[in-house]
Amino acid sequence: MNATPLSIPDVILFEPKVFGDARGFFFESFNHARFDEAVGYRVNFVQDNHSKSSKGVLRGLHYQIQQAQGKLVRVVQGEVFDVAVDLRKSSPTFGRWVGERLSGDNKKQLWVPAGFAHGFVVLSETAEFLYKTTDYYAPAHERSLLWNDPALGIEWPFDGEPVLSDKDRNAKVLTAAEVYD
């Protein structure tokens, strides 16, 4: 499995070695020892999540101000544009974002460490999205950062308006959001 730090080096793109033939394919989707070596510290995942969404659905940008979650995300069917925004005030990349296309075809995974907001938009007709988290879901601590905050300048690859939850429609801009030290 190749592990490539992105322009925000704490966010890492994982690309598995896929073995395929006329019968189909096989790949190792997770190896704890190799993952920990790539990120440079021990990570303990406590929860796995699975969502399915339709084209144009945008989920995010979500984070938990307490019980911050690191997330290892991937798509098993369809395609999304996945985004991580650095909300660590002491970081040299505070307020910057990175994005990657993840799909069932390319089998890429993205490591989004704690201290980041995370979201994605569905580019295919539907997409099934899987992610592992390093802490449990804590609704009392969940926050949303506005997906189209001009200060972030995220270049979402779609036209028109996304399909949003009320929570995401009413999210805060970066200057009004709670962030990490």
Rank of each mutant, 00 (worst) to 15 (best):
S90L: 05
F94T: 01
V73N: 09
V75S: 00
T126S: 10
E125D: 15
G99I: 00
V76F: 01
L87W: 00
W111I: 03
F129H: 07
V122N: 03
E100Q: 15
W111Q: 08
R74K: 15
S124A: 11
S90Y: 11
V121Y: 02
F94G: 01
A84R: 03
T93F: 12
T126E: 14
Q67G: 14
L130I: 11
F81Q: 06
P113F: 02
W111H: 01
G70F: 00
L87E: 01
G104T: 07
V80I: 15
G119F: 05
A140Q: 14
R96G: 06
K89P: 07
V80H: 11
T93H: 15
L110F: 10
D105Q: 15
A138F: 14
A151L: 11
V73A: 03
A127P: 05
L145Q: 09
K132H: 10
L146W: 13
F94Y: 15
T134Q: 03
A68V: 04
A84H: 11
N148F: 11
K71E: 05
W147H: 08
D82C: 10
L123M: 15
R88G: 06
Q77L: 13
Y63D: 01
F94E: 05
A68S: 15
R101G: 03
K132V: 08
L110A: 02
T93V: 09
T134G: 04
K107V: 11
K71G: 05
H141L: 07
V75G: 07
D82F: 06
P113L: 00
G78Y: 09
V122P: 01
F94C: 02
A127K: 07
Q77Y: 14
Q109A: 13
L123D: 10
A114F: 05
Y136D: 06
D149C: 08
S91V: 09
V83N: 00
Q67S: 14
D135N: 14
G99Q: 09
S124P: 09
V76S: 14
A68L: 01
G78K: 13
N106E: 10
V80E: 08
D82P: 00
G115F: 12
W97F: 12
T134N: 04
A127R: 02
V122Q: 02
A140V: 14
V76L: 10
G104A: 06
Y137S: 11
Q109H: 04
Y137D: 04
V98P: 06
S144V: 13
D149H: 03
E100T: 13
P150R: 05
P150G: 08
T126V: 13
V80Q: 08
H118L: 02
P113K: 00
Q77W: 14
V98W: 00
G115D: 07
Q67C: 06
L145C: 01
E128W: 01
D86S: 01
Y63E: 00
V122I: 08
F116C: 08
Q66R: 15
N106Y: 05
T134L: 03
Q67H: 15
H141S: 15
P150M: 10
A68P: 04
R88H: 06
